[in-house]
Amino acid sequence: MAGVSAIPAAEDVLDRELDVLSLPDVARALGLPLTRVHQMLRDGQLLAVRRDGVLVVPALFLNGEGVVKGLAGTITVLRDSGFNVDEMIRWLFTADDSLPGTPIEALRGNRGREVKRRAQALAF
């Protein structure tokens, strides 16, 4: 499957207790074909980690309505700041006392502006 190997993925830097979804599960949750999920990963609208050799997406990246609002924009800001996929995943799941909580929790709490501001500050 040449297409799957072209999908950027982080090493599994996440807590093993964190819920993750297989790519077919992400496709079902979003009501999209699996190929569209692959494209979202390639385009930086989502991030994946390789857990036990399988690509998975942190469940916190999705909510009942789809991909968490602001995630794709935050990924773009981090990529533009020179972050690789491993660093992006780590940053999104590392507690920040000034938010408080983790950036992904802040995005889920509709505090995307604050998250993007912090991500932009990392470039300087």
Rank of each mutant, 00 (worst) to 15 (best):
A29R: 07
V68Y: 05
L71R: 09
N63W: 07
L71F: 06
L30C: 05
S22E: 11
S22C: 14
V54G: 08
G64W: 07
T35P: 00
T74W: 05
V67S: 08
R50N: 13
L34W: 09
D19E: 15
S22V: 04
G66H: 04
G64C: 06
T74V: 02
D19C: 05
P58G: 11
V57I: 14
A59R: 13
V26L: 05
P24N: 03
L71D: 01
H38C: 08
G70K: 09
S22I: 05
A72Q: 06
R36L: 09
D19V: 10
E65M: 09
P24R: 12
L34Y: 14
G64F: 06
N63M: 12
G70C: 01
A72E: 04
R50Y: 08
V49N: 11
K69W: 11
V54K: 15
L41M: 06
V26K: 04
L41N: 01
P33I: 10
P24G: 06
R50V: 02
L60R: 15
L78G: 01
L41G: 01
F61T: 12
R79E: 00
L46I: 03
L18A: 13
K69Y: 09
V20T: 15
R28Y: 10
V68E: 02
V37E: 03
A59P: 07
R36Q: 11
A29N: 09
A27Y: 02
G64K: 02
D19F: 08
L32Y: 13
L47T: 11
V49W: 05
V56M: 13
V68S: 00
G53A: 13
G70R: 13
V20D: 13
P58C: 14
L60H: 12
T74K: 08
A72K: 10
T74R: 04
P58R: 10
D52T: 11
A72C: 10
H38T: 04
P58A: 11
I75K: 02
V20L: 10
K69S: 09
L30F: 06
G64P: 08
P33D: 10
L47S: 09
L32H: 04
L18V: 15
T35L: 08
L18I: 15
D19H: 10
P33V: 07
